[in-house]
Design a protein around this nucleic acid. Sequence first.
DNA 1: TAGTGGTCTAGACCACCTG
DNA 2: AGGTGGTCTAGACCACTAC
Lengths: 267, 267
Amino acid sequence: MKGVIRVAEAELGVLAPSLLLPNRSGPVPLWYQIASGIIRAIDGGELPAGALLESERAMCDRLGVSRLTVRRAIQDVVDKGLLVRRRGVGTRVVRLGSGQHNLTSLFEELQAAGRRPSTKVLELRREPCGGEVAERLGLQEGSAVFHIQRVRFADGAPIGVLHNYLPGSVRGITLGALETDGLYSLMRSAGVVPLVARQHVGARGSTSRESLLLAIERGAPVLTVDRIAFNAAGEAIEHGLHCYRPDRYSLDLPMRFEDQTRGRIGA
Amino acid sequence: MKGVIRVAEAELGVLAPSLLLPNRSGPVPLWYQIASGIIRAIDGGELPAGALLESERAMCDRLGVSRLTVRRAIQDVVDKGLLVRRRGVGTRVVRLGSGQHNLTSLFEELQAAGRRPSTKVLELRREPCGGEVAERLGLQEGSAVFHIQRVRFADGAPIGVLHNYLPGSVRGITLGALETDGLYSLMRSAGVVPLVARQHVGARGSTSRESLLLAIERGAPVLTVDRIAFNAAGEAIEHGLHCYRPDRYSLDLPMRFEDQTRGRIGA
DNA sequence: TAGTGGTCTAGACCACCTG
DNA sequence: AGGTGGTCTAGACCACTAC
């Protein structure tokens, strides 16, 4: 019986999701509206696992946009790991197992599944920075940095311990603001705009302080994220050192395999 | 003195990297050749930290390619976390601290820094799959799967324990082949082409078997990667369950911050 | 052979930032 | 005002896959 289902899925015909026609007056890019529509169609079951999407040219005609716009939209969904494309074949919806959650945003998965997020600020002060932090931020050792330490909760249960360091001082970052808004949102409000970040993900045993805050045994494994964010001037504007309880937090990272056409880089 | 250096860096003029003119006859896309040239210029110091790149239009004229091609090339480097772009401002090289390594590919960092990688195959056989693996691969429990267990070394020191499961059978995957080539390269040779993958990264304590293989204490923290790869039909074709010694292996994941223009998705 | 996605062009208008 | 990146168009040719 289940074998039959597999065959039936494999022979799903071409499907054209009922994408709402894009709104050209607003500030939202066409490709983004189309990508959102495709994701909605997948999440809502209109595009079931294994379905063959209509061709790019067909979608262009139907929506009245250029092919590049459609391609950018589809590319966005491919990068999220929901679609698969192959030249000469077409575009299909990935067949996720039953247990998989379809779409998890990288850092906001606390809000998902109705888990109520909250934040407790443990520390918020200017201090001279140590050598490690100075090197990461491109400062001299001992320069003044803003140091923030928070604990993140979901439904009252501790998820992670977050340390953040900002060079100099940033207005508008107060204890109360940090307990309702995200750090990046506050930084943006203060005119400090993060554009790209370099991140390292690893693991280690918890320190005794962390074990107390996270309610785990000392030395129990934690997932670590080490991040440096940069502004438009290319300067490091934030350094994050976070650790998470691995039973309550993990990272989702979709991946595209490189094309094999470019084995050799042209002279 | 160092303050002076900072100012000098901030006032670096526009720089045009000496990109080799692209080769249009080969199979390598123009945008890929240009992106490689930019990365080479950054790694080689020709584009120092904080340098302002020439404008997209200037680069178009200089290289004789269209603007979209240049944009795609630059986008690629931005996605690797080496450049920062902002409308009305320009494109700059990120200022990495002295200790940072400039560029690390996600899974091949074993080769970097002259560390000699090797692989030992512990298991390679067909077996009926358990419920967990069946669910991930979209199979019925008990279906035959190819199970591969390997240990990865760098300079003779164990790095990680890798379990992989392939549905059915795949020709050409032998013990000898696995010790010299990567699994994905062998799969591709057998006509099984991975296109996208969903991955989960987490942490846990090592099992007793893992602790023996990795030469760590039992229960010591390991970094885990749980992956499912998909082919053009949208079918799961591989499931990986890996764990790594966190002192010898970590993941690098550059990140772009979302534009804030698209807060609301157009109706 | 017909259809697919992958690449590329030569324009255009816009929002944004700096002078 | 002039320059920057962000978006979009309407074409074109190519490589690949299936039939």
